[in-house]
Amino acid sequence: MPDTTQKNDEKKKSGKPGKVVRGERYEIRFSGSGGHGVILAAVMMSEAAGRNPKLNVIQTQSYGPEARGGSSKADVVISKETIYYPKAMKLEMLLAFTQEACDKYYTDLKPNGLLVVDSNMVTKLPIKNSFGFSFIRIAREQVGHPMVANVIALGAMAALTGLVSRDDLKEVIKTRAPRGTEEKNLKAVKIGFDLGLKALKEKIG
């Protein structure tokens, strides 16, 4: 029986990006409003992570009345061990497209968890450990379509977590992006990945 017990010990830090520590769960949440494409972003993240044969991945979501303008969320749980409980419990990283989603979910972050927001949408940051990017504005200005903001955010999240490679993301986007939008989405993910890497360097540097 694999030991997958949730260890919430603060001392044993797993907060470093890019590490799925043995016996632990690495949990990410994509949240926003209906139409932000948070579920698709989570699906793409899961599929890209799943390309690593050592990782188990589960993606769940919460929608319904919330998806009609309220907050919607999609969780990705990644572990080297069997994942029993499928929903996220303590988030490593939270993406919030709206202030409402940010306020609702930031308490689910681990003590050292990272908050990533759309800086135009989320102006009041509840915690310090955070990054802000103008996903929607960049999508409109650099790709010509606000719809790809979720994929830019996905790219940034991927770079910040270090869990999935650029190539894996590209492969997933080729299959999951709606037909005819592959080029735009590939461009978007590149922009996002670069943004994430740059931010990470600035922080570490």
Partner: peptide, 9 residues
């Protein structure tokens, strides 16, 4: 519902 909509690799 959770099982039906859940995705696993």
């Amino acid at each position: 519902e959770v099982l039906g909509h859940m995705r696993e690799v």
